[in-house]
């Protein structure tokens, strides 16, 4: 299953809940405001670093670019919309709203 998180991890616990529930090796894709979580040194860095021990974590490039997010924790993978579609081809998607 592909877990899609779109809400900001600084104001909402959807990322936290996703990480709590997601099965090992299920990929997590950050979109929209959720991409703000990937900057190093942030309050959610350790949550994402822990998540990356059990999951591949992706961030959507268009949303990163739109928000000027120009630096990322090591290990975060960047995908464009074509990559987003490929993730959905490989896994059933589930959006954490």
């Amino acid at each position: 299953m592909l877990h899609i998180v779109s809400r900001s991890p600084f104001s909402d616990d959807s990322l936290k809940s996703c990480v709590r529930i997601a099965k090992k090796d299920d990929p997590i894709l950050l979109t929209e405001d959720a991409v703000t979580g990937v900057m190093p040194g942030s309050a959610v860095a350790s949550l994402l670093q822990d998540a990356m021990k059990s999951h591949a974590v992706y961030a959507l490039s268009a949303d990163l670019k739109a928000r000027g997010v120009d630096r990322m924790l090591d290990g975060i993978k960047v995908v464009d919309y074509a990559g987003f579609v490929e993730l959905v081809e490989q896994h059933k998607p589930m959006t954490w709203l």
Partner: peptide, 9 residues
């Protein structure tokens, strides 16, 4: 969740 075809949030 892993058994589902569709999850609606």
């Amino acid at each position: 969740m892993a058994e589902q075809d569709v999850i609606l949030p």
